[in-house]
């Protein structure tokens, strides 16, 4: 049995331990709730993380380069990007899997001499962590874009009343004549 077959076989155990480790990174009360409440509408964080890591695990075994990985990572990182996590803590959940696999597959790796497979697999997880970090940054940028967009929406009609935006429309071709304010409004 190869490395990937062993991973597939041990999937339920590994994913369970992985989920447990991820949710343990929340304060005790939150962790308890995220683990216990199974209704995805009453517990979107626990549910999303649990379903996403299952999908993620399948895809990593199947094809770690697959595009199908992205939505799973995206769902998790979107949540982590708005919670009390530093960037390192936000992507750390990938490294938790490394640790779990080393412990759970320790015997098999030694007995069947799979250390090289483990190394390749861990390299893939490192890449995944980098991808997770990219997504985290995209989410953070998105939050700031949303903030800017909201401020623009709030002031747009008021600025229109003040003739600032109307002026902008008329002078659209004359960039040099725009004030700093109107350039900002235009974005």
């Amino acid at each position: 049995m190869g490395f990937k077959e062993i991973l597939s076989e041990k999937k339920p155990l590994i994913v369970e331990k992985w989920l447990d480790a991820i949710l343990n990174n929340y304060p005790a009360d939150a962790s308890k709730f995220f683990k216990k409440q199974k209704d995805g509408f009453r517990n979107p964080v626990g549910y999303t993380i649990s379903t996403s890591i299952k999908g993620l695990f399948d895809e990593i075994i199947e094809d770690p380069e697959s595009e199908k990985i992205y939505p799973y990572l995206d769902d998790i990182m979107k949540i982590k990007a708005v919670q009390d996590f530093s960037p390192s803590k936000a992507v750390q959940f990938i490294y938790l899997l490394k640790k779990i696999i080393r412990i759970e597959l320790d015997n098999e790796i030694t007995q069947k001499n799979l250390s090289n497979d483990l190394k390749i697999f861990e390299d893939q997880l490192d890449k995944l962590a980098l991808l997770a970090f990219d997504i985290y940054m995209l989410c953070r940028e998105r939050i700031f874009e949303i903030r800017v967009k909201e401020l623009k929406n709030m002031s747009y009609r008021l600025l229109k009343r003040a003739n600032l935006v109307r002026e902008l429309e008329e002078q659209e071709s004359n960039f040099a004549a725009e004030t700093v304010l109107t350039q900002n409004i235009k974005g």
Binding site: F33, P44, Q83, D84
Partner: peptide
Amino acid sequence: FFIGGGDP
């Protein structure tokens, strides 16, 4: 806020 953020 607790459900989405996890701050006890």
